[in-house]
Design a protein around this nucleic acid. Structure first.
Lengths: 132, 132
DNA sequence: CAAAAAGACACTAATATGGTATCATTCAAA
DNA sequence: TTTGAATGATACCATATTAGTGTCTTTTTG
């Protein structure tokens, strides 16, 4: 069971590096080298972050990526949802449309509680809090 | 992101049915029909529960499966670990053997906290508590 | 104009999950 | 003693997700 996939993990690490050095611009490959991550893979990840408004990008020589948001405004929950979709722990249970017995309802309620906790924890962590 | 896969979900439901009717024996197909689950699939699930000591099985005509444990001694955490392996939310982070920066250590600690909560919640629920 | 960057997109590989099919074995009942 | 109903074991298939590559286009700077 994975809470954080590689895509999201790499995104978090890259953003941490970028947050440390204020307004500097980074190319995908520079970051990839620093973090020992496959270059083309990280590049795609940064492109997605750009589309989602977390990064700004500049093409051409000397171009690259730079933070579009303050580091304390980039929350883990957002990054995870960008790369993994919404955090829904009870997905499979809900697919069984009709609740076949009271028991699964109790189970569902429990799972919902866990989900709420996970979401609230992930919402409390931002890039800035990972730097201290 | 899935907390409970279909295998574990089906196992839970089947065990709930079996727990309701004390010491009756159920064939895989009888349970499958009652729960509207594909027969051969549930059969494999019950075989696994048998191997893991949650069920006892009897071959031959009139055979089937019966609980090997008291319903309040079968915990969700065990069922999930049987079908999905240990609940390790930080798997992917640990694979990056060496902690590449202090930031991922903080992240790891946070993820560990979440993991502990999930495990303790799942450890507090047993089949019996799903029946009330 | 050349090189260095991102944009876009198609593709492959590995893994996990959900599910099927088949044959062997056991056991009870007719 | 034979038959049928059950599990045991195992191989297989389909689909989805994740991880990662490759290639071509576009933009921008020097």
């Amino acid at each position: 069971m994975k809470l954080i996939t590689k895509r999201a993990d790499y995104a978090i690490r890259a953003l941490c590096v970028m947050a440390k050095n204020g307004q500097r611009m980074y190319s995908a490959f520079e970051l990839a080298k620093k973090l020992k991550i496959p270059g083309p893979f990280l590049r795609r990840i940064l492109q997605i972050l750009n589309k989602r408004g977390v990064l700004k990008s500049y093409k051409g020589q000397g171009g690259g990526f730079i933070l579009a948001l303050q580091p304390d405004n980039i929350f883990l929950i957002d990054l995870i949802e960008i790369f993994q979709g919404p955090v829904k722990l009870n997905e499979c249970l809900f697919k069984a449309k009709i609740c076949p017995s009271i028991s699964t309802c109790i189970l569902r309620r429990k799972v919902d509680e866990i989900e709420k906790f996970v979401v609230s924890e992930l919402s409390s962590i931002n890039i800035n809090s990972l730097l201290n």
